[in-house]
Amino acid sequence: MQLSTHTDYSLRVLIYLALQKDKEPVTVQTLAERYAVSANHIAKVGQTLTQLGYVNSLRGRSGGLVLAMPAAQINVGQVVREVENLKLLECFGSQSNCQIESACRLKSVLYRALQAFLTVLDEYTLADLVVQPAALQQLLSKSRKASYL
């Protein structure tokens, strides 16, 4: 299974915010620079995470994004469920036009595989992803040239 770029960067933004010891707000621009992606993309990710309640968006001169709860309370599986489109096939939706759906086992096999994938992700919180904060901070502090330019 391949997660969308939006889900990937949602998890990366959460990781970056979890690394902030002083819990100071982080700007969209800073996140975009650290991950070498478009600020517009990070802004959309930030908006999604804010709407879902994982992040608070603070306005003003010293504004930015901060975690809305402790990292240990943010379950990775739940984030993926809420951010990712988990409709693997047409028959996963209510508008299926598949002629073989009633006799096909593919849907049930893929459903079981998806549940196994999510079950593993459910075993981890955001805090579990940042157990090497010094190494992560060092890698993220290096100036990177934006790959979208």
Rank of each mutant, 00 (worst) to 15 (best):
Q47Y: 10
Q47K: 11
T48Y: 03
T48E: 01
L49G: 06
Q51F: 08
Q51R: 10
L52H: 08
G53P: 02
G53L: 04
G53T: 07
Y54M: 06
Y54I: 07
V55R: 00
V55W: 01
V55T: 03
N56C: 10
N56W: 09
S57W: 08
L58S: 01
L58Y: 04
L58N: 01
L58R: 00
R59Q: 15
R59P: 08
R59S: 12
G60E: 01
G60R: 08
R61I: 07
S62R: 15
S62E: 14
G63R: 02
L67S: 02
L67N: 06
L67W: 02
A68C: 13
A68M: 09
M69Y: 06
P70N: 15
P70S: 14
A71I: 03
A71K: 12
A71M: 13
A72D: 13
A72K: 14
A72C: 09
Q73F: 14
Q73H: 12
Q73M: 14
Q73V: 07
I74H: 05
I74P: 10
N75Y: 00
V76D: 06
V76H: 12
G77H: 07
Q78M: 10
Q78R: 12
V80Y: 02
V80W: 00
V80K: 01
R81C: 07
E82N: 14
E82V: 07
E82P: 08
E82W: 00
V83G: 04
V83T: 10
E84F: 10
L86F: 00
L86S: 04
L86Q: 04
K87V: 11
L88T: 02
L89E: 09
L89N: 14
E90P: 07
E90T: 06
C91M: 12
F92N: 04
F92W: 07
G93M: 10
G93R: 12
S94W: 10
Q95S: 13
S96M: 08
N97K: 15
N97C: 14
N97M: 05
N97E: 09
C98P: 06
C98F: 13
Q99G: 08
I100S: 09
E101W: 09
E101H: 09
S102W: 12
S102R: 13
C104E: 11
C104Y: 11
C104G: 04
L106Y: 03
S108H: 13
S108I: 12
V109P: 05
V109N: 07
L110S: 05
R112S: 10
L114A: 03
Q115C: 06
F117D: 00
L118F: 13
T119F: 11
T119I: 00
T119R: 11
T119C: 09
V120F: 07
L121P: 03
L121Q: 03
L121T: 04
L121K: 13
D122W: 10
E123S: 12
Y124K: 02
Y124Q: 05
T125A: 00
A127P: 04
A127E: 15
A127H: 14
